[in-house]
Every structure is written in C-alpha cells, then in structure tokens.
Amino acid sequence: MARHSETVEPRGRARGRSPLLGGATFELRHRVARVAWSTCWILFARWTPPQLQPLRRLVLRAFGADIHPTAMVRSSVKIWWPGNLKMGERASLGPGAICYNVASVTIEDFAIVSQRAHLCTGTHDIDDPDFPLRARPIKVGRNAWVAAEAFVGPGVHIGEGAVLGARAVTFRNLEDWTVYGGNHAKPLRSRKKIV
C-alpha cells in the first residue's frame, strides 16, 4: 500500500462522482485492506492486556508499520492505516489516541502522544466544489510530548523536546524545547533540554 504524502486526490471524480456526492475517496483495494486491518486489530490486539505489547507491534508490522521493538502502542488507540505509521525507540501512543494518518505520521524516539490526543493528517479543500481530501504528514520530534486530548493538524512538525499541553490545538510547527498551550497553541515557556 503506497504512502500518501502531500495530496490525496478523490477517486470518484474520475468516474464523474465526487466524494461529496457519495463517490469513493480511495480505491477499492485500499478500502478492503483497511477493513482487513480493522478486523485484525479488533481480533488480535484491541482486547490485549499491557503484557501483550509485542503482539500489538506484530499486528501493526503485518500491515506495514515501521515500529521499533520498544515502542508502546496501547490497545485502545485508533490508527487509520499502519503503513503510514513510524515509531522510534520508546515512542508511545497512549490510551484512546487517534492517529488519522492518511499521510505519514512519525513519532520519533522517546516521544509521547498521551491519552485521547488526536494526530490528524487529513483535511478537505473547501474551495473545490468536489471537497477533495488533502493530506500532509505529521512529525513528533524526539523527546516531544503531545499531552492529553491535544489536537495536531495536517503538516505539523513538533520539534525536539517540545510540549503541546493538554487540550491544546496546533496547526503550526512547534519549536524545539518549548512548551505550548491553548487554542491556537502559543508558546508559554522554554523547557530544559533532556540530555
């Protein structure tokens, strides 16, 4: 399954039927693959206790995820497509986190995405009458923390050691070793570098 990088073009338009009118955004083979992925996650991973972390990583890898052997993915996460997910050493996706990764999501070494945080790579072109899906990758830098229920929009790069506070929202890149909060997130203070 190919990764989606910058723009996802609607498939329905070629057949004269836009996604806005009920046409498909993705090819049939991709929709079938996503049904298989969702089914496998429910059957083999969703119910697993913390001790079965290796099984969850195995299921993710089977669908193309690039997951470090020490990365932690909680059983209650929602991942749109594993083939667009890369997680580094000790990287973590917390309980109930949503990873809507139509484009790639990279969570670097020691980065944390906390409970119910939302990483959203997709949006729509509101100026196009067909309302096509547009997707841009998200990167969460090394030692960064996306706190509980925060929202990260398409194309955002969260710098090394940056913190996006609880329930904060960002559609812009976050500078290294800076703490942000609010909606839209604003810098609050510097953070001491972790050696």
Rank of each mutant, 00 (worst) to 15 (best):
T7M: 04
T7L: 04
P10L: 13
P10C: 12
P10V: 11
P10D: 02
R11D: 06
G12L: 02
A14Q: 14
R15E: 13
R15T: 13
G16H: 04
G16C: 06
R17D: 05
S18C: 15
P19S: 15
P19I: 01
P19R: 12
L20P: 10
L20S: 12
L20Q: 12
L20W: 10
L20M: 15
G23E: 02
A24M: 13
F26A: 04
L28M: 04
R29F: 01
H30I: 03
R31S: 06
R31C: 02
V32P: 10
A33Y: 00
R34P: 07
W37K: 03
W37T: 06
T39N: 01
T39C: 11
C40Y: 06
W41I: 01
I42L: 13
L43Q: 10
L43E: 02
L43A: 13
A45H: 03
R46Y: 13
W47V: 01
P49D: 11
P50T: 10
Q51A: 12
Q51R: 14
L52N: 13
Q53S: 15
P54D: 00
P54L: 05
L58H: 04
L58I: 10
L58W: 04
L58R: 06
L58A: 05
V59M: 01
L60D: 11
A62G: 07
G64P: 12
G64V: 01
A65V: 10
I67R: 00
I67K: 07
I67M: 07
I67H: 09
H68Y: 05
H68R: 01
T70A: 11
A71D: 00
A71I: 15
M72S: 12
M72G: 03
V73W: 03
R74S: 12
R74E: 10
R74M: 06
S75E: 12
S76D: 05
S76P: 11
V77Q: 01
V77Y: 05
V77A: 06
V77H: 04
K78M: 05
K78F: 15
K78N: 09
G83A: 04
G83M: 08
N84L: 03
N84A: 15
N84S: 13
L85A: 03
K86P: 00
K86Y: 01
M87R: 06
G88N: 01
E89H: 03
R90E: 00
A91P: 14
S92I: 14
L93S: 05
L93K: 02
P95H: 14
G96A: 04
I98M: 03
C99K: 13
C99G: 07
Y100E: 06
Y100R: 09
A103G: 10
A103Y: 14
T106I: 08
T106N: 02
I107N: 03
I107T: 07
E108R: 13
E108Y: 08
I112V: 02
V113I: 15
Q115W: 01
R116K: 10
